[in-house]
Simulated assay, not measured.
Amino acid sequence: MDSLTPSDLFSPSKARQQRAQAQDWAHIDTWLQYKYSGRTIPTFERNDETLKVLRELSMANERADEEKTMQERLEREALKELSERVVNEEDSRLLDALSAALTPTGAASLHALASTSIALQTSTHSPEALAHALIHHTSVSQALSNQLLHIQTLQAYLSKQQSLLRMQLQELQSNPAFSPSSTLQRQTADQVRQTKHLRAKIREYEDKLSSLQLTQQKRHRSGSSTSGIGRGADIGSAEAIAEMLEQQKGLQELRHRVEELEKEVEVFGGLPADKESARKEVGRLEVEMDKVRRKRDALFEGLVG
């Protein structure tokens, strides 16, 4: 039996488990001392498996002792009842005379009637009562047989499903396809970093675009108010517009790239940061997906049927 460690003192569940094991071992020691009656108890390893086996053995022994005590009490009561029963000599002579006067067919019928009453455990010898009791026993026996057959079928189905689930669990635990990549955490961090970088770029380009639009509006207002704008200014405005359109195109491409990265990151958004925890979460989701798929197949088969 494991002793309490300093860490167990701060864990109520572990301390409670240790107390329960100590009580079980105390009960087992008392039972063994009673069974060996002062003799030396053989040494054995004190662990959880030994405790479980000894506890089951003590419970089975106690049940056997109770059954033996009940059987001895019933035998004593039956013996006492037989010893106290007083046999009437006249009834005995009358019974002998009736038995001697019966024909072989009558004696066989009387014996059959008595045997049937004893087998059906009825307190009367009326043929109608015996017939009703026989019908009742037959119906009960048939119902029990049907229930037993149903239980056997259900047990076979459950055993088959258990084997199937064990195979699926083993496949989930051993198949590398159901385990997350070893670089999943690093990939998620890289994608998050790229997303933040692209968002900063988008804000920067939006600011530049707003500045260019404001400059263009000012130039447009100044061009409409003065009529002496040279050809060089027109060429500068065209180049500025072309540059603005090019930057706007790049901005749209960056925004599209950011949206794609956000979608990729959202797929892993609900997973824990720890690799083992993420792997367990993926396994649990795979099991739930398999349950939903089997439920869908069952519903489809029911609709087709």
Rank of each mutant, 00 (worst) to 15 (best):
D2K: 07
D2T: 07
S7A: 15
S13Q: 14
S13H: 13
A15D: 02
Q21V: 07
A22G: 11
Q23C: 05
Q23T: 11
Q33R: 05
Y36M: 10
P42A: 14
N47E: 13
N47Q: 12
N47L: 06
V53L: 15
R55M: 08
E56D: 12
L57G: 07
D65K: 04
E67K: 05
T69N: 09
L74A: 07
E77S: 09
K80D: 14
E81K: 08
S83Y: 03
V86K: 07
V87D: 12
N88H: 04
N88T: 03
E89K: 06
D91E: 14
D91C: 04
L95W: 08
D96I: 00
L98P: 00
L98T: 08
L98A: 15
S99Q: 13
L102I: 00
G106A: 15
A108Y: 07
L110R: 08
A112T: 02
T116F: 04
I118S: 07
L120W: 01
T124G: 04
H125T: 10
H125L: 15
E128N: 12
A129S: 12
A129P: 01
L130Y: 04
H132N: 07
L134G: 01
T138I: 01
A143D: 13
N146I: 10
L148Y: 05
L149H: 11
H150E: 15
T153G: 11
A156W: 00
Y157M: 08
L158T: 07
Q161V: 01
S163Q: 11
L164V: 03
L169N: 10
E171D: 11
A177F: 13
S179L: 13
S179D: 08
T188Y: 01
A189D: 04
K196S: 09
H197F: 12
L198E: 02
K201M: 06
Y205G: 05
D207H: 12
D207N: 10
L209A: 14
S211M: 06
Q216K: 02
Q216Y: 03
Q217H: 12
Q217W: 03
R219E: 14
H220D: 05
G228S: 13
G228D: 14
R231K: 06
D234G: 03
I235V: 13
I235F: 10
S237K: 02
A238R: 02
E239K: 04
A240R: 03
A242L: 07
L245F: 08
Q247V: 10
Q248L: 05
K249C: 08
Q252M: 06
E253T: 06
E253W: 00
L254I: 05
V258M: 11
E260I: 01
E260C: 01
E260N: 05
L261K: 00
E264G: 02
E266S: 14
V267K: 09
G269V: 02
G270L: 10
K275V: 03
S277L: 15
R284Q: 15
L285W: 13
L285A: 15
M289L: 11
D290Q: 09
K291H: 11
D297P: 00
F300I: 07
E301K: 13
E301A: 15
G302Y: 12
G302F: 12
G305L: 12
